[in-house]
């Protein structure tokens, strides 16, 4: 893999020291604008209760207060069983990733490569469904799930993902369309059927975009607040997002605990992304496609 990933880069000659320096300066500047605010979050998370959070000059790095205990308080508050919430969230998130990747890769492939009557119309309708705001669908959808007897269960949060999602179908379709079609044609000539082409040729090729899907589905369902809140009614079914939202109140916002909890919340998604990068960057080069 290494040779190919390096080999696919542009003309080696342009990669001079100066070029690299410019790139590093840009990267470091961008990183700073992202990390400084996060430093402010950490500073806030480490403050004792009632210490002023909104100081006249922003404190970018923790200097005076080191209440590491806040992380434990945020996580171990008996009123908010975060371990339980985490288990529930992980379950919902995993089911959503599996459901979305399965259904959307199949449908996306069909829209990209199969020719059938009304394909373009169907595709346009799919795009239009993305336009309908969830604010308008919340109550009708609620009534539907309620009438299915799913109120108070996790089913409304899981089952729909197995029926596809317009955003990800569209994403995968576009990705497949940018892949050279020769490999698939060759496989067809070699006697593969449509399913085998999909399974053995297309699926490996679209791994980067499936990783993107997984990361986005993870983020969406990990941070989703309203869905779990509206459908779940027992505390033991609640998710991390509800637990965190319960820390923000207009009367007495424990901003230190809130920031601590949010910093902890970031860790799983960041780890997932860090690990997923290997898959994300690879694509065609990594399967060794020869033109």
């Amino acid at each position: 893999m290494t040779l190919q990933t390096i080999g696919r880069r542009r003309r080696p000659g342009t990669r001079t020291i100066a070029w690299r320096a410019v790139a590093y300066v840009a990267l470091i500047a961008m990183s700073a604008t992202i990390l400084l605010p996060l430093g402010w979050m950490l500073t806030t998370a480490l403050k004792p209760d009632f210490a002023p959070v909104f100081t006249p000059t922003p404190q970018w790095f923790p200097t005076t207060d080191w209440e590491w205990n806040n992380f434990a308080r945020a996580l171990l508050d008996p009123a908010r069983p975060f371990w339980r919430y985490t288990l529930n969230t992980v379950f919902i998130v995993t089911m959503n990733i599996v459901g979305t990747v399965l259904s959307c890769s199949l449908v996306g492939y069909a829209f990209a490569r199969l020719r059938f009557r009304g394909r373009e119309t169907l595709f346009a309708i799919l795009i239009i469904t993305m336009l309908i705001p969830w604010q308008a669908l919340l109550i009708p959808q609620f009534l539907l799930f309620y009438n299915l007897g799913w109120y108070g269960t996790m089913l409304p949060l899981i089952v729909p993902s197995f029926f596809g999602n317009a955003f990800f179908i569209f994403l995968i379709r576009q990705y497949i369309r940018s892949i050279p079609v020769e490999l698939e044609l060759a496989a067809r000539i070699d006697g593969c059927n449509q399913w085998q082409v999909f399974r053995h040729i297309v699926l490996p090729l679209i791994r980067p975009v499936l990783m993107v899907c997984a990361v986005f589905v993870f983020l969406d369902s990990w941070n989703d607040l309203l869905g779990p809140l509206v459908y779940l009614i027992r505390d033991e079914d609640f998710t991390v997002a509800i637990g965190i939202a319960n820390m923000v109140t207009s009367r007495e916002p424990h901003l230190n605990l809130l920031m601590a909890a949010n910093l902890i919340m970031m860790i799983p998604a960041t780890l997932l992304y860090f690990l997923a990068q290997k898959q994300l960057v690879g694509g065609i080069a990594s399967v060794g496609l020869k033109g």
């Binding site: 607040l225 309203l226 809140l229 509206v230 009614i233 505390d235 939202a245 319960n246 923000v248 109140t249």
Partner: peptide, 8 residues
């Protein structure tokens, strides 16, 4: 007793 976030 079930805690429900204020905004929603």
């Amino acid at each position: 007793a079930v805690g429900v976030p204020e905004d929603n």
